[in-house]
Amino acid sequence: MESLITAPTRRRWLRAGAVSIVIAALLTVFFAAMRLQPPHRNPQQGRTAPVFSLSLFDGGRFDLAAAGGRVVLVNFWSSWCLPCRDEAPLLEATWRAYRGNGLVVVGVNLWDAEHEARAFLQRYRISFPAGSDPKGRTAIAYGVAGIPESYFVERSGRIAVRVPGSLTAENVATTLASLGFRRP
């Protein structure tokens, strides 16, 4: 085998090294510049909650604007979504436990057939207000990107917390505690 390193290779190594250093430096600068940009702010959290009005399955109406002074937990759900089935009892229990303390739970049914949604409500004995968002306007206004998805709206009308995916007993409890609720 011929030897890889012969007399004039030093110069070549230097040149190759210089080229690699320049490339590496450019990449580092690029990456650093990306990091230096203002950090991404999740637009779905911290801004004023879009007001919406929902016609409920039980015939009534729900108006977010009319819920003033109370904390609202807006939950987007669908009958075909498995995690929604898991969190339905939790939502019902939360509603029953905190409604006296000024919490409203509202279920916004999305991407669903009406009869299936009704069956779902019956099966899980849902008593909190639930209505359908047939054109998805409310969901888009909130920036819903999947199902289930929940929003905690403060008394001031600001979205305090967005929970993409399933709620758990713990994160409901801690979020409500941070919003000034006492465990009943």
Binding site: R12, W13, A16
Partner: peptide, 10 residues
């Protein structure tokens, strides 16, 4: 591969 090309550049 690019190292080899650099090595054989001449």
């Amino acid at each position: 591969s690019f190292g080899l090309i650099a090595l054989r550049w001449d």
